[in-house]
């Protein structure tokens, strides 16, 4: 038996987490990237910096602050408590929340770059043809920046699968609830079951290479797009 039932559970959780996170991050990140690409004011720059922050913060630091922020004594946790909601830490929803936050820069950056490269002209053209802002965004901007959306989705998905420090802190490593693939590998390394760790870690290496390969395959289209041939 190559994989144990616990391994399968961890793999399922990781895939579920990455899928939900990718969809939510795109839903939040696309409008955000659009807004960031449409101006230069200091408030916009400040928001851009905050969105990028998870790239440079050590994961355990980010995890710790999220834990404090979302926990029963933090501002968000208190609000949740008063509203009678379940607290986010140590639940799957908590993992999703944390994952959306740390995957956001990986999604926002390629989209923002693509939107900036696009310039104002397509939107102006759409407006003269009578399209409203939302209509123009969905029918003109999104199709023209499709490669950037794909890059954003692959990066967001892959980064969520690979994340360890934040999800360990906010998830509590609870089997079948929050023990994702990276934590299962950690458990194997700690118990010095290197053979089992190798199977999962090798699978992850294979997955990462495959994900980056997808990006490489997408790249020529992006370049053509940048040169205005699409």
């Amino acid at each position: 038996m190559l994989l144990t039932p616990e391994d399968w559970s961890a793999i399922r959780l990781s895939l579920k987490l990455a899928s939900v996170t990718t969809v939510l991050t795109l839903a939040v990140g696309a409008p955000l990237a659009w807004w960031l690409s449409r101006g230069e004011g200091w408030w916009r720059r400040f928001c851009g910096a905050v969105v990028t922050m998870p790239l440079v913060l050590p994961p355990t630091v980010l995890g710790f602050y999220l834990l404090v922020f979302l926990g029963p004594f933090g501002p968000v946790g208190r609000l949740f408590g008063q509203l009678g909601f379940r607290l986010l830490p140590f639940t799957f929803s908590g993992l999703v929340t944390a994952s959306v936050i740390f995957s956001l820069p990986f999604v926002v950056q390629p989209l923002q770059n693509a939107f900036e490269a696009l310039g104002e002209r397509p939107l102006e053209a759409a407006a003269t043809l009578g399209a409203g802002p939302l209509d123009a965004f969905l029918t003109v901007i999104v199709p023209q920046t499709r490669p950037a959306f794909l890059t954003a989705a692959v990066m967001g998905f892959a980064h969520t699968i690979g994340e360890f420090g934040v999800v360990l802190m906010i998830g509590g490593n609870i089997p079948n609830v929050t023990r994702v693939l990276s934590m299962q590998i950690y458990v194997y390394v700690e118990t010095i079951e290197y053979a089992r760790a190798h199977v999962l870690a090798g699978g992850m290496v294979f997955f990462s290479v495959a994900a980056m390969l997808v990006l490489q395959i997408l790249k020529p289209r992006r370049e053509k797009f940048a040169q205005g041939r699409i």
């Binding site: 355990t60 710790f64 834990l67 404090v68 926990g71 029963p72 004594f73 933090g74 946790g77 607290l87 830490p89 140590f90 360990l168 802190m169 509590g172 609870i174």
Partner: peptide
């Protein structure tokens, strides 16, 4: 150390 931080913040242990 992580457990300490988690327990202080409402972990279900």
């Amino acid at each position: 150390g992580n457990f300490y931080a988690q327990i202080k913040n409402g972990a279900p242990f």
